[in-house]
């Protein structure tokens, strides 16, 4: 009975949405704000990648909220699962190929991750995408050698200080007479690596925080799994 009602609800929702969806003028977005941002962004923010200009400039506080959500999720997982200490033995280390591969991949992934983070204001990519790659760089060696887990203290320091750095850059703008998260520093030449003022610094903070958060989350989940088996 409950299932039937729920299915009816889902079907009705789908039908309703479809009816509205067919009325949309697809491919001709009104772009009131989008148009204005496109014409203003090169001058106001100075990032060649306009999505980055929106993410870190125009909607910077959304990004701060999103970092806080990742932090809250990782903190909550730590709170729920963290107090169980590993009492049983962890999985044995994997074979030579996986271990060597993990060690080889780590520096490569670090370089790629940092490249994507630092070019976030010029090309597709940025702190979130690069941060995920950084998290993978730190987590792959853990998968290869479960007996040497991630150092929680290091992760905690990175996630705390990079998040604080993002906020402090924003507060620096507030206390130099502007608004919170107002772009600071020289805009430079559009398209250069050193351009767009504080944006690359903000993205670096985002990347480090996302990397530390995700690696910490994975480590918590992996540790809990080990202690369960």
């Amino acid at each position: 009975m409950r299932n039937l009602a729920s299915l009816l609800f889902a079907g009705g929702l789908g039908f309703l949405l479809m009816v509205f969806g067919l009325q949309f003028d697809f491919g001709n977005a009104p772009m009131l704000v989008g148009q204005a941002i496109q014409s203003a962004a090169p001058e106001q923010v100075g990032a060649a990648n306009i999505v980055t200009a929106v993410v870190l400039g125009y909607r910077g506080i959304d990004t701060l909220g999103e970092l806080a959500i990742l932090f809250a999720a990782s903190t909550a997982v730590g709170l729920i699962l963290g107090h169980r200490h590993t009492s049983t033995k962890p999985d044995p280390d994997s074979g030579l190929i996986l271990r060597a591969g993990g060690e080889l991949l780590m520096p490569l992934l670090l370089v790629v991750g940092l490249y994507i983070i630092l070019h976030g204001h010029l090309t597709p990519g940025g702190g979130f995408q690069g941060g995920v790659i950084l998290a993978a760089a730190f987590f792959i060696p853990v998968l290869a050698r479960p007996s040497t887990p991630l150092k929680h203290t290091g992760m905690m320091l990175i996630e705390g200080f990079s998040g604080a750095a993002f906020i402090l850059i924003g507060l620096a703008a507030l206390y130099s007479g502007g608004e919170f998260l107002q772009p600071l520093l020289d805009k430079g030449t559009l398209g250069n690596l050193v351009s767009a003022g504080t944006l690359p610094l903000l993205y670096l903070a985002v990347g480090l925080k996302v990397g530390a958060e995700l690696a910490g989350l994975l480590a918590h989940l992996a540790a809990a799994e080990v202690s369960e088996s």
């Binding site: 009131l32 704000v33 204005a36 941002i37 203003a40 106001q44 400039g57 125009y58 909607r59 910077g60 506080i61 959304d62 703008a173 502007g178 608004e179 919170f180 998260l181 107002q182 772009p183």
Partner: peptide, 13 residues
């Protein structure tokens, strides 16, 4: 109203 980041309203938050 305060404009976060110093951008005029419908563009910024």
């Amino acid at each position: 109203a305060i404009n976060i980041g110093g951008f005029m309203p419908p563009l910024g938050i």
